[in-house]
Simulated scan of single mutants.
Amino acid sequence: MTRRYCSLPRQSVPAFTPGLAAERLGALIGGRRMWVNGTVLHYCFLEADTDASVIPVPGTGETRRVPWAGAREQLDVVRECFREWQDLGIGVTFAEVSDRCEAELRIGFQLGDGSWSEVGRDALSVGAGERTMNLGWDLTEPGGRWTALHEIGHALGMRHEHQSPFAGVHWDDEAVYADLAGPPNHWSRDRTDASVLRKLDPAEANGSVWDPQSVMQFPFGPGLILEPEQYHNGLYPPGSLSPADKEFVLRWYPPADVPAPLVPFRSAPLGLGPGEQADFTVAPLETRVYRVGTFGESDCVVVVFEERGGEPRYLAGHDDGGTPHNTGLRVRLVKGRRYFVRVRLHSTWGSGETAVMCW
């Protein structure tokens, strides 16, 4: 059986302040790629003639253009998979747009470049002219729908399930290297280490219990897994969203609450636990540059959205990322428009309340 695997881009390693307490560091690692709840993730399909990679032609010294555009049937599979995630009732929503400058998620279909996606908020660091996701084979073939569901899971912040430190998987490393070095993957040892053999930090895992039925779990053929013994003859997840997948995204992205007003120059206390979120609306009294920030001993991410056409559009955000400074940003707000401020707490320490304010 041919098994083509997701090849994640190399993940950046965050530089946190040395000496952070283990609990605080774990909260930062676990939440740093997750979107704030209530985000509308706009996605576009890269179809223009200018959307392509230029790659060398071996042995000729010449190059050729490989387009990123996908056929209509491919696009329809991806749309259906976005709807399947959305229909779980999660607080993050998806909206297709035609302008890639308006899209947080930009999807290409370059054949031969594998299938991969940036993980969660890492997509924001990718240039507007580049892909944040690629689907590199025919999604109408068997396993194609699993590929699209899997890559959208990455876009939501999920990691590979077989890399969970809770799995207790004992690999036959050399057999795995040999299997993935051949067709159709042709992976280097470094790529195999990064996408299969390396264990995640416990805080990065999708849950505290391994879920071999997860849509984020790769299928593996016989002889690659030595333990647990029941998978020595292969592990074949169904390729659909498991109950644990659904629980994970609903825990991070529950149905959104009605936001409270955040009145300029009045602080709003944040009675949040780690991973929890508070949502506010702001109606600016005048058009000018405002500061939006938190107070207290806490690690938070603050994101400001502007309502356009009835939906929130990302305007600015800041994550204090384990520094001793509170989250704060400067943003121009226009009188007569409505804005949303969303604050997600990573962790707190010390004593006293935390609060957010717009001034």
Rank of each mutant, 00 (worst) to 15 (best):
P14K: 05
E286G: 07
H154K: 08
C44I: 08
R330H: 14
F218C: 10
R159Q: 13
V304F: 08
L270V: 01
G153F: 01
W116M: 02
S214A: 11
G30I: 00
T39P: 02
E311K: 14
Q213F: 00
A71Y: 04
P67M: 11
D76S: 11
V40L: 12
A316F: 03
V282P: 05
I152K: 03
W187L: 14
C358N: 05
A260Y: 09
G182R: 07
A256M: 13
L139R: 06
M34Q: 10
W210L: 01
F295G: 06
T287V: 13
G234D: 00
I107H: 00
C101F: 15
L149Q: 00
V356I: 15
R79C: 02
F16D: 05
N326M: 02
E80W: 10
I107K: 02
G350A: 08
V92T: 06
G59N: 14
E161C: 00
I90A: 07
V92A: 03
T50D: 13
L75W: 05
E130C: 13
V66A: 13
F82N: 01
V57P: 12
G19F: 07
R83A: 15
C101Q: 15
A355Y: 11
V92L: 13
E47A: 15
G223E: 14
Q277N: 04
P184V: 08
E80L: 11
V77P: 01
L235S: 15
R145V: 04
L197R: 09
P183Q: 13
G168E: 08
G31A: 03
R308V: 13
P261R: 12
G352H: 11
D190L: 12
G114D: 00
F94I: 08
A268T: 07
L272I: 01
R338N: 10
F94C: 06
G293V: 10
T39L: 09
Y314E: 11
Q277Y: 02
P324V: 03
G223S: 12
W210C: 01
G350L: 06
C44Y: 03
P18G: 09
P261F: 13
V258K: 11
E276H: 08
G143V: 03
A148R: 05
E47D: 15
S7K: 12
R198K: 14
A355D: 14
L270H: 01
W349E: 09
L329W: 06
M34I: 15
S117W: 00
P142W: 06
L329Y: 06
L105Y: 03
W349C: 05
F280K: 04
D319L: 07
